[in-house]
Each structure stands twice: as C-alpha cells, then as structure tokens.
C-alpha cells in the first residue's frame, strides 16, 4: 500500500480512525442492543397483548416476556368461560366445583367489588351475556327478545347466588339464572399476573397492554411511560395523554370501559356490551367511557365496569368511599370530568 499515500505512518492511523468512525456510525444505528425499549405482541384473550420492556438485555428480555405471556395464557385457560375446560366453565356446568385457591381469591375479590358497587359489577351474568352474544366470534346484530331478558331478570333478581367455601376450596352456584363470567375482571387479573411474572424475572421497567387495558411499572430511562387514551368515537384520535410518574417510579394500572368496544347498531340504537345487572340491558348511564387508574389492574378492570354502569353521580359517591382510585369519564355529549388525582392531560 506504499504507493497509495504520500506519508506512511500518520495516514495509516487516520485511515484506521476513519474506518472505525464510519463502521461505528453505520452499525450502532441498527444494533438492537442499543435500542433499550422492546415490544412483543401476542394474540391472547381474544385481543392483542403487548409487553414493552425497557433497559433489559436481549436474552433476558425474551425469556422474561415469554414467561409473562405464558402466565397470561395460563390465567386465560383457568378463567375463561369460553374455554370449555376452564375451571370457570366447570363451575357453570356442574354448579359446584373445587377450584384453585387463586380462582377462589379472584372470585372473592369480584364479590367484594360487586358489594362495593351495589351490584353494578356482577360476575354472574354469564347467561345474560350469552343471550346478547357479545362474546362469540360472530358478533350479534340484533338484541334478544324482551321476554327472554325479562324472564332471566326475574330469576336473577333476588339474592346472591354464589357460595364460596373457603374450607373446601369450592365455588357453588345456587341460582339457575347465574353463570359465572369473569370477563369484567379477568383481563385485569391477567395483566397483574404478567407484571408479577416480569418482576420475578428481574424486569423493573415494563408496560403491559392487553387490548387497551394497561399496567406500567418503572420508566424508560429518565422518561415516564406515556400512554394515549383513544377517542371513544374516532379510532385514530387520542383524547388524553397519560404519563406514568413525574420523577418517582409509579406502578399504576389503567383500564377503560366504553360503549364502543363491542357494540352493534339496531334500528338506529346502539347496543353495547356493558350490561346493567338491574335491567338486563346495556347500561344507559350517560357515559361513553370510564377510565380508572389504581395500583391493581384487577381492581381497575372491575371498577371501570362498575363506574360505567353506575353513571356519573353514583360513581362520584362511590369514589368518596374508596382510596387511591382515580377516574376519567367521558359523557355521551363528549364533555369530560376527571378526579383530581387522575394522571392525564386532555389533548
């Protein structure tokens, strides 16, 4: 190479310097280990579930995320009333069943939320939900007969109907009209379990998003997790930007219930999937959506359904009785209200 350059030594050094500069410039850009945020998405629980982590080394990250997804799948197979082999389905089938402690505890929690919300949230609406057909693969396009709903309501109305025996670890159904459907709380529970799994794998910064319900821990480096809340009517638009934390690590879940998630329009009326246990019809509470923030996704899930059914006034009353729960409501006319501690700026 003697002939190439006028002066040997220094030029060779410059050349090496430039080579490494160029190489570095081209390769660090595309190098994945420099990209500290990583998202994996799977199809679970009938929706898209994304787990985003920050600052976790590649191999560890894939394993932690895979384990978290497995945990979600496990919860689904335990609790989904769509899966005929799940314990919940077995309870519904046999009217009494010995269950895992985990399911027992979840049902206890569901009952607690039911009591707290005065029945606005109810885990025993299985037969009603089947009647309306929102959970099937072929969405409905017209409501069930009024007489069907009336007769269900008649049997369902009085009393509790779900007996929990801690001694035997069993759940029993004592009313015919009742079938367990944990749809209003199971997603939140799965999210919580995914977070537990991630923490166990040593992940400290993560965001789990299951079909629009989320829980986030930690942050992205020096920036907080940033989530946008979708407009209830316009899919491409966002109405609120929520940031997890202002400096301190915040572990928070946010679940939204709305009349736009599953619905159909029949004779110009909108029929959505959040059913009111008091009358058997989709809740008409003057709201388009309710977003709940609290530290448990399970609680947020159940409460968001409850608040939606309760409506604005009763929700505000309920809020006074519980701590560490913040909400945002979007009314049918498009106006909104949020509790003081709700993290989010209207956009």
């Amino acid at each position: 190479m003697k002939w190439l350059f006028a002066k040997r030594g220094s030029n060779l050094i410059s050349l090496i310097f430039i080579v490494s500069l160029v190489y570095g410039a081209f390769f660090t850009g595309s190098n994945s280990s420099n990209n500290k945020k990583h998202t994996t998405t799977q199809l679970l629980m009938g929706t898209l579930v994304s787990i985003t982590t920050w600052g976790v080394e590649d191999k560890k990250e894939s394993k932690a995320v895979a384990d978290a997804f497995l945990e979600i799948a496990r919860v689904e197979s335990l609790m989904s009333s769509h899966k005929k082999s799940s314990q919940v389905s077995l309870i519904n089938l046999k009217q009494s069943q010995i269950v895992d402690k985990e399911l027992l505890e979840l049902i206890k929690e569901a009952q607690r939320i039911k009591k707290l919300s005065n029945g606005a949230f109810d885990l025993g609406l299985g037969k009603l939900i089947t009647m309306w057909g929102f959970s099937t693969d072929n969405p409905p396009n017209k409501p069930p007969e009024d007489t069907e709903i009336a007769s269900w309501l008649n049997e369902f109305k009085e009393g509790d109907g779900i007996a929990i025996s801690e001694k035997n670890n069993s759940i029993s159904i004592t009313k015919q009209a009742i079938a367990l459907d944990l749809g209003g709380i199971a997603k939140g529970y799965a999210i919580d379990r995914a977070i537990v799994s991630l923490k166990k794998s040593g992940v400290q910064n993560a965001l789990v998003n299951a079909g629009g319900d989320l829980r986030g821990i930690g942050k992205k480096g020096d920036k907080p997790w940033r989530v946008g809340i979708q407009h209830p009517r316009k899919q491409d638009k966002l109405i609120v930007a929520t940031q997890w934390s202002n400096g301190q690590n915040v572990d928070m879940a946010m679940v939204t219930s709305g009349d736009y998630e599953r619905f159909f329009i029949y004779k110009e009326k909108r029929y959505h999937h959040i059913l009111n246990p008091k009358n058997g019809y989709p809740a008409k509470s003057g709201l388009q959506s309710v977003s709940v923030q609290t530290n448990s996704a399970t609680l947020a899930d159940g409460l968001s359904t409850a608040f939606f059914v309760l409506g604005e006034k009763a929700s505000k009353e309920l809020l006074k009785q519980i701590e560490d729960v913040e909400i945002l409501i979007v009314r049918s006319d498009g106006t909104h209200w949020q509790s003081k501690g709700f993290r989010g700026e209207w956009l």
Partner: peptide, 28 residues
Amino acid sequence: CGILIQIKGDKKPATTEQKEKLFDGIAR
C-alpha cells in the same frame, strides 16, 4: 382466525421530534 402478521424489527421513530410525541401504548 388466530392469525397475526407483523413487520419484523423494532419500531423506529423517524425523527427525534416524533420520538417525543411517541406513545408507548394506546388505552381504550
């Protein structure tokens, strides 16, 4: 259908300005 397709690779925001506005998730 149980079918999901995804373009391989991590999402890359085009400009740093977009990076600022980027949301880590959409709640609905």
